[in-house]
């Protein structure tokens, strides 16, 4: 019983990270139909930022988690730079070119980090120093609950932003009809940049959540994390914001449960199997609608 509760909390914690990262993929894909391979690496950027800024915050007598603000700012900066420098010039050049460019940016960020920070992992100082909570005999890390709460709040806030604000509405309009959006006075380029900014900012938050659980920054941490988050986005239905959240939580829970109860050595393989099965059976994901190709 206690193991079950612990697993659920761990799974949700993990899932919340995936969900936040998946949001970044989904928003970008939703607006320009491109898998931003570099998105996972934004979390790496955020994590290294935390590695350097958490001690600074502590030194300045402020709470360690305030470092996330700097992480968000750095991530947004990198996100916008990537979009402006690399993606904008190849927009409209075909999906193959876009995909390779995204891949190249991912490699670029990772190898830039390798040159800047070296190959050794950096351990990020503890961000939350909170006691364990006893609940029905299960020991639960209270920081997990905090990250979970942060995750849920971020998702709700995003949902409200997209649904209610003018900019949010413009973001939804652009993917549906770029020309019509332009005609109705929406600055498409600016909306795309803004989408990248929000996605990257979320990656900064995800970095905080990830580092509070796994306090290590490595140059290639973004690759697999990004891939799994992408799986979550596809599972929920790419381009659909609630889908990313649901997909993230499902992938997180599944991973923890497979790790704990079924086959610890194989949990990653099973996550990938899920992706393959989803793509083959219902490529539009859980919440997606089927759209045939126009002939």
């Amino acid at each position: 019983m206690s193991l079950l509760i612990q697993s659920i909390v761990n799974g949700l914690n993990q899932g919340a990270v995936y969900a936040l990262v998946a949001l970044g993929y989904t928003m970008v894909y939703g607006i320009i139909r491109m898998i931003n391979f570099a998105h996972g690496d934004f979390i790496m950027v955020g994590s290294y930022t935390l590695f350097y800024t958490v001690p600074l915050m502590v030194l300045a007598g402020m709470p360690a988690w305030m470092a996330v603000i700097l992480a968000i700012i750095v991530c947004i900066g990198v996100g916008i730079a990537v979009e402006q420098i690399a993606y904008k010039p190849v927009r409209g050049a075909g999906s193959m070119t876009a995909l390779i460019t995204a891949l190249a940016m991912s490699l670029l960020l990772e190898n830039l980090a390798l040159v800047l920070f070296g190959a050794n992992p950096k351990s990020v100082p503890a961000i939350f120093n909170l006691p364990m909570i006893e609940f029905l005999g299960a020991k639960i890390q209270s920081k997990y609950l905090i990250t979970l709460a942060i995750g849920v709040i971020m998702m709700l806030a995003l949902q409200v932003f997209i649904k209610k604000t003018r900019i949010g509405k413009a973001m939804r309009a652009v993917p549906q009809d770029k020309q019509a959006a332009t005609l109705s006075g929406i600055k498409v380029d600016r909306i795309i940049t803004l989408t990248f900014a929000i996605g990257s900012g979320l990656a900064g938050v995800a970095a905080l959540m990830y580092c509070s659980t796994y306090p290590r920054a490595t140059t290639e941490m973004g690759t697999m994390l990004g891939l799994k988050a992408f799986i979550a986005a596809v599972l929920g239905g790419i381009g659909i914001i609630p889908g990313a959240m649901i997909g993230g939580l499902i992938v997180g829970l599944l991973e923890i449960f497979i790790k704990v109860y079924i086959a610890p050595g194989w949990y990653e393989a099973i996550t990938y199997m899920i992706l393959i099965v989803v793509l083959l059976v219902k490529p539009t994901g859980l919440l997606g609608k089927n759209i045939g190709e126009k002939v």
């Binding site: 898998i35 697999m224 891939l227 990653e268 199997m273 490529p283």
Partner: peptide, 18 residues
């Protein structure tokens, strides 16, 4: 396209785990 790209990564990872 994109989906095939992702699936090939997934297969390679499964092979690696195996």
């Amino acid at each position: 396209g994109d989906y095939l790209a992702i699936v090939t990564i997934a297969f390679a990872e499964i092979i690696r785990v195996a």
